[in-house]
């Protein structure tokens, strides 16, 4: 197992390098030069040139890439001009907030989605199946940012059950219950679409598995139906559900950008949008590379989980 994890980590290196190249190239396409953006259009040509030199922007593209990459590897993502602080510090602070939001949403979508899919498949064409299918249809069609706004209207404004936005109360908050109260709405709004997708897939994976010969064998042995469904069938269905969970993690992470805007959650998505609007290239570049790298590592964990589940995968 250790060797397998190591092998997967090594195979991720070219992917990570590729990501840095792609992001760097996209950022290099930017028309005009960042120095003008930073100094404003009234800057003198001398000042622009000096800043370009200071930022290392006068070097050829390839050289610039390797300088930047070398710095990134040792953890130096540069300095954000708009925030005037190291990019990495900002990223780490913001990403931890996103991780709480996206992590909780991901667990919600995995648990609820699989559960709904299993119930739906086990009661195919029954009332529960129809209800779940209908709910899933609504869930995957509603834009998460719209859903979030409607939740604010209902639960925060009209019913006053939950805080409108933010991560902690401004006065006197800061503890875990406070965080949870702030987390309920954004996490559920964020998980709705992914839950729908997971439920749909789990249902069809279960239906596929339930037709297999080994399910008939389990029934022929006299295994109780509950165990046939929750044990034999679900275990086998997980083989096709887990990769989709990996993909959905990407969608949850993506959706977090919208939800962070709606709920004023101090996460990395909002940071990126702000950075784009302020044309803070180093911050965008660093944030994108950092999150993409985390996602790649997460997917390695998904693969490892898959190999633990399925002994037929050669490790």
């Amino acid at each position: 197992m250790g060797a397998y994890i190591l092998k997967r980590l090594v195979s991720a290196v070219p992917v990570l390098l590729g990501i840095t190249v792609i992001v760097f190239l996209i950022m290099a396409m930017i028309p005009g030069d960042p120095a003008t953006a930073i100094l404003g259009s009234y800057a003198t040509p001398e000042n622009v040139e000096k800043l370009n030199r200071d930022l290392g922007l006068d070097a050829p593209l390839v050289q610039r890439y390797f300088i930047w990459l070398g710095n990134v590897i040792v953890g130096d993502f540069g300095r954000s001009y708009s925030l005037n602080r190291p990019v990495l510090d900002e990223i780490l602070e913001r990403f931890s907030a996103t991780l709480i939001l996206a992590g909780v949403s991901f667990v919600l979508c995995a648990v609820l989605g699989i559960l709904a899919g299993v119930v739906s498949a086990a009661r195919q064409y029954g009332l529960a199946d129809k209800a779940i299918t209908f709910a899933v249809l609504i869930g995957i069609s509603v834009p998460s940012f719209f859903l979030g706004m409607m939740m604010i209207l209902l639960f925060a404004v009209n019913l006053r059950w939950l805080p409108v936005s933010g991560m902690y109360a401004i006065y006197g908050g800061g503890d875990l219950p406070d965080l949870l109260r702030h987390l309920i709405m954004p996490a559920s709004a964020l998980s709705v679409v992914a839950t729908g997708v997971v439920a749909r897939l789990s249902r069809s994976a279960m239906l596929e598995v339930l037709r297999q010969d080994y399910i008939r064998t389990a029934r022929a042995k006299g295994v109780p139906e509950r165990r046939v469904i929750m044990g034999h069938a679900l275990r086998a269905a997980m083989v096709s559900i887990i990769p989709v969970l990996g993909i959905q993690a990407g969608f949850v992470l993506s959706g977090a950008v919208y939800i962070e805007m709606v709920f004023q959650w101090p996460g990395i998505g909002r940071m990126l949008v702000d950075a784009i609007l302020k044309r803070d290239i180093l911050l965008v570049q660093g944030g994108v590379v950092f999150v993409a790298a985390c996602y790649v590592l997460f997917n390695i964990m998904v693969d490892v989980a898959q190999s633990l589940l399925d002994p037929r995968i050669k490790t």
């Binding site: 992917v15 590729g18 990501i19 792609i22 992001v23 996209i26 950022m27 396409m29 930017i30 028309p31 993690a249 990407g250 969608f251 992470l253 993506s254 959706g255 950008v257 998505g269 990126l272 949008v273 950075a275 784009i276 609007l277 044309r279 290239i281 965008v284 570049q285 994108v288 999150v291 993409a292 996602y295 790649v296 997917n299």
Partner: peptide
């Protein structure tokens, strides 16, 4: 396909944001 796999290694919004960042809103 290697290139495609690499692009799929991104959560989609990151790529979209990077492109918008480069091209401007």
């Amino acid at each position: 396909m290697r290139l495609v796999d690499m692009l799929m290694a991104f959560p989609y919004i990151l790529l979209a944001l990077a492109i918008v960042a480069a091209l401007g809103p």
